[in-house]
Amino acid sequence: MHATDLDVARIERATRLIAPVFLRSPQFFEEQLCSALGRRVLTKVETLNPLRSFKGRGVDLLAREFSPGTDLVCSSTGNFGQAMGYAATRHGMSAHVFVPTGTNPVKMRRMVAMGARVHEVEGDRFKQEARRFADQDPNRVFVEDGEHPRVAEGAGTIGVELLETEGIDTIVLPVGDGALITGVARWTKEHAPHIRVVGVCATGAASMVDSWKAGRAVSTEVADTFAEGIAINRPIAASVERMRVLVDDMVVVGDADMLDAMRLVLETVGVLPEPAGAAGIAALRVHDLPGATVATVITGANAPTALFPDVLTLGTSTSQSVS
Rank of each mutant, 00 (worst) to 15 (best):
E228C: 10
V197E: 01
L272W: 02
T157A: 08
L61R: 12
S94T: 15
R234H: 15
A283V: 07
V247I: 12
L6P: 02
S94N: 14
F22Q: 06
A303K: 02
L33Q: 03
E274A: 10
P138N: 08
G78N: 09
N233H: 15
T165V: 15
S35K: 14
L33N: 01
R40Q: 15
P50N: 08
V184T: 04
T4K: 07
T47Q: 06
R39Y: 13
G81I: 09
W212D: 07
T4D: 03
T220G: 01
L37E: 12
D210S: 10
M258S: 00
V222R: 11
T47F: 05
G156Y: 08
A237E: 15
A278K: 01
G115C: 14
K55F: 13
P304F: 02
G291N: 13
N302T: 11
A202R: 01
V45K: 04
L62N: 11
A19C: 11
I195F: 06
I230G: 01
G85N: 11
V322Y: 07
L264P: 00
T293S: 01
L180N: 01
S211P: 08
G156K: 02
P50L: 10
V197A: 05
D288R: 11
P149N: 09
V222Y: 05
K55T: 10
A295V: 08
G215S: 09
A88L: 08
K213E: 12
S321E: 12
M243Y: 02
H96G: 03
L272G: 06
T165M: 13
G78A: 12
N139Y: 07
S67L: 14
L163A: 09
D288A: 14
V297T: 05
S25W: 08
G159Y: 05
S53A: 15
S323L: 15
F226P: 00
L162A: 06
A206D: 13
A227F: 02
V253T: 03
Q136G: 11
G300Q: 03
F98E: 01
G315T: 13
V21S: 11
E46L: 06
S321R: 14
P275L: 02
V175F: 03
D137M: 06
A278V: 02
G56I: 10
S75W: 11
